[in-house]
């Protein structure tokens, strides 16, 4: 009965200067759908952190954002190196970012914790050498 809409984005892993573009577009789309500004802020920040991680750590990937009546679901999928120890990666301050990336202001090890903080649920499925799928949900009701 309830209709949902899905946006799909390709995240380019080679271009740092345009990193974050998908998240900025999501913000725009959600605004057009009339979603509450605080919800938009949470969704777009969580997505940004995931998008940047795909650029920095996984060479790019795909993002899907589905808006239903009940919630907004963000799925980030990459075929990067995977995360060996998810618990460790979730810790504030843990980062494997290179010096080059750190000089741009990334690499504080706060991205995954932010994603958890700003969403109502978060699930990470990752296999070393295969890739990473992260699903996050923000409730609308």
């Amino acid at each position: 009965m309830s209709e949902s809409v899905t946006f799909r984005f390709e995240v380019d892993g080679s271009d740092f200067t345009s990193a974050g573009q998908a998240s900025v577009l999501v913000k725009k789309h959600l605004r057009q759908l009339g979603i509450d500004p605080e919800i938009i802020r949470r969704v777009s920040i969580a997505m940004y952190e995931g998008e940047i991680n795909m650029v920095i750590h996984a060479g790019g990937g795909e993002a899907f954002v589905t808006v239903s009546e009940e919630d907004i679901t963000i799925l980030l999928s990459d075929k990067g190196p995977g995360i060996a120890d998810i618990d460790k990666a979730m810790q504030e301050g843990y980062s494997t970012a290179t010096d080059n990336v750190r000089s741009l202001g990334f690499g504080a090890g706060m991205g995954l914790p932010n994603m958890k903080r700003y969403t109502d649920s978060m699930d990470i499925k990752s296999e070393v050498g295969v890739g990473t799928d992260i699903t996050m949900k923000v409730n609308l009701i």
């Binding site: 952190e49 202001g105 990334f106 504080a108 090890g109 706060m110 932010n114």
Partner: peptide
């Protein structure tokens, strides 16, 4: 702040 994820958070 200068670390981007801190600012985001």
């Amino acid at each position: 702040g200068d670390l981007l994820s801190w600012v985001m958070g």
